[in-house]
Write a protein that binds this DNA or RNA. Structure first.
Length: 441
RNA sequence: GUGGGUGUAGCUCAGCUGGUUAGAGCACUGGGUUGUGGCCCCAGAGGCCGAGGGUUCAAGUCCCUUCACUCACCCCA
């Protein structure tokens, strides 16, 4: 036999049932929260015209777009995120606004994989289209908060800032428009490399010493118990866009206060976010303990839809990174225990009694009980071992004795106890026992 | 795109300065149990030591090349 080489592309993964069952539970939890907030499901194609995606993410992002030519000579690209395709769709169709939708789908980036980073990964997006109010931003932040809480996260921090505030600060420091993105990208690293590190990076990028000192000292200046926003409002009083930004942030804070979720929210002037299309409030979630970048990121993108239709429609949204969430949950031992899909295994005593087993497994299935019949002629020992390894909680054994008496042996794999039940009673008994085994998760 | 680490049994790994038949734990198979799993005991199977080339009397071990994986940077979910 000739073996052919087989492997999967770097940064992609196969999901075997043991992982995928858990993964689906995490997705189901997030989806449930999204729907609890009234967001409705939507999907778009994985493949778009390259033109649709290009020049939406900035220089860095553009390099990472998977792009190729199809058989018809068209330039196509795999979606890089779920936000730009949403914007394209919103430009194409009329929907009732304010519109809230969610989408849980894979996206592709030609990145170099590392911990919590893949080339094919899933994003869980929730967006609101058609509301320019900060309420919408607050709603999305609140949603992020709820989704994480439902998954069991407690120690997380949702950092919130406003692009307009950053613009105001840059204006105040006399930084050129073209250099702003680069400037704030450095500022964004303060938590990682410290403010001195940021400064030296900015100097090496040839920013004016005066501009750097002026802006950084303002951002970092905090007295004990001071309110950052209040302080900035005074300093930046002469910059209208900054004043506006601060008012927005305070409104968001009020809304979040009404939702009673202020404890995990932190206003952070150093937060910048890399994507080009953000125009207003921006936010991301970081977890301190196992540190692997952000697990959610989002913000307002009021001009993005307009790049397609010419008609700007305000929009805001967030994206939860499924694999990062799962990676952290794994490290923190927060994942639900893996359980079998089958609730009952119907053993096959031997070849001559397979018909009986098929009859019983059919009855169980008709009663809505997830059941499988063992599909080889193996010794009972082997079949029970199979149930044990797969964590199937109940086994039904139908041997010659049971066949004769019209009974079945019902075995509880957790306790090891078993009993004989008449065939008529079997379904009722199985249902009852499954009901008693309330899954801990 | 830049830099570091690692490739030995299905999985996790050991293998000292190159030296004869390459090891462990878990998993697997058979037996101890005649219709019964988990624990225990006994036995067994399973490796071109990632691939290619080189140095040497001798290479899992040293050198070169290549592929793969992984971590960090950039950027990001």
């Amino acid at each position: 036999m000739v073996s052919t080489p087989y492997q999967i592309l770097k940064g992609t993964r196969d999901f075997l049932p043991s992982q995928y069952i858990i993964r689906k539970k995490v997705v189901a939890s997030i989806q449930q929260t999204f729907e609890e907030f009234g967001f409705e499901p939507m999907d778009t194609p994985a493949l778009e015209y390259a033109e649709t995606l290009e020049e939406k993410y900035g220089e860095e992002g553009a390099r990472l777009i998977y792009k190729f030519t199809d058989r018809g000579g068209r330039d196509v690209a795999l979606r890089y995120d779920l936000t730009v395709p949403l914007a394209r769709a919103m430009a194409m169709y009329q929907v009732e606004k304010p519109f809230r939708r969610y989408q849980i789908s894979p996206v592709w980036r030609a990145d170099k994989p590392q911990k919590g980073r893949f080339r094919e990964f899933w994003q869980c997006d929730a967006d609101i289209v058609g509301s320019a109010e900060t309420w919408a931003d607050a709603e999305v932040i609140g949603l992020t908060h709820s989704a994480l809480r439902k998954l069991g996260f407690k120690d997380f921090s949702i950092r919130v800032n406003n692009r307009k505030l950053l613009n105001g600060i840059a204006l105040y420091g006399g930084i050129e428009k073209e250099q702003m993105a680069s400037f704030f990208r450095s500022v964004d690293k303060s938590e990682k490399i410290g403010w001195e590190g940021v400064k030296s990076e900015l100097f090496s990028k040839h920013f004016q010493t005066s501009a750097v000192e002026k802006t950084i000292s303002m951002i970092t200046e905090k007295g004990p118990g001071d309110d950052i926003l209040e302080k900035l409002r005074q300093t930046l009083a002469s910059i209208p866009i900054a004043v506006e930004a601060i008012a927005e942030l305070e409104e968001i804070r009020r809304c979040l206060g009404s939702m009673g979720i202020e404890q995990n929210i932190h206003f952070d002037v150093s937060l910048a976010r890399g994507l080009d299309y953000y125009t207003g409030p921006i936010f991301e979630t970081v977890i301190e303990k196992p540190r692997i970048g952000s697990i959610s990121g989002g913000g307002r993108f009021d001009d993005l839809i307009g790049t397609f239709s010419g008609d700007n429609i305000p929009a805001t949204g967030t994206s939860l990174g499924l694999e990062r969430i799962i990676t952290i949950m794994e490290e923190l031992d927060m994942l639900p225990a893996n359980a079998a899909v089958s609730e009952v295994l119907v053993a096959v005593f031997d070849r001559s009694l397979v018909d009986l087993s098929f009859r019983v497994v059919s009855e169980l299935r008709s009663a809505g009980i997830r059941s499988e019949i063992y599909l080889k002629e193996d010794r009972l020992k082997k079949q029970l071992n199979y149930a044990n390894n797969k964590r199937i909680p109940l086994v039904v054994i139908l041997g010659p004795d049971e066949c004769q008496k019209g009974e079945a042996v019902l075995k509880d794999m957790r306790s090891g106890t078993q009993m004989s039940v008449s065939r008529e009673e079997l379904i009722r008994k199985v249902t009852q026992m499954l009901g008693e085994m309330v899954a801990p998760d």
